[in-house]
């Protein structure tokens, strides 16, 4: 189980949080309970199983919604 912090471009509507939240939670291998989308710091924090899903997959799910990913780190 790895922990990731993803820095996004500025989020402007609380609705965006809802979208990103459901998109990330929809990925197989992401620990649903751990997903936190922080509106003001425009960050996503989550835990995931790196056998099932990679940070790139998570990044892709977010950019597909139209949000910029500035950096994605995991450890």
């Amino acid at each position: 189980m790895k922990k990731a912090v993803i820095q996004l471009g500025t989020l402007t509507c609380p609705m965006c949080v809802q979208k990103i939240d459901s998109a990330v939670k929809g990925l197989d291998g992401v620990e649903k309970e751990s997903v936190k989308v922080l509106f003001n710091s425009s960050k996503v924090k989550l835990e995931f199983d790196d056998d099932k899903v990679s940070t790139e997959d998570i990044e892709k799910a977010i950019t597909a919604l139209g949000y910029e990913v500035k950096s994605a780190r995991a450890r």
């Binding site: 509507c13 609705m15 809802q18 979208k19 459901s22 998109a23 929809g26 597909a64 919604l65 139209g66």
Partner: peptide, 18 residues
């Protein structure tokens, strides 16, 4: 265009957005 795409992507994750 961008608004429509955002709306479509949101529906895909089952969110009815602005």
């Amino acid at each position: 265009l961008p608004i429509g795409i955002q709306a479509y992507q949101a529906i895909k994750v089952r969110v009815i957005s602005i």
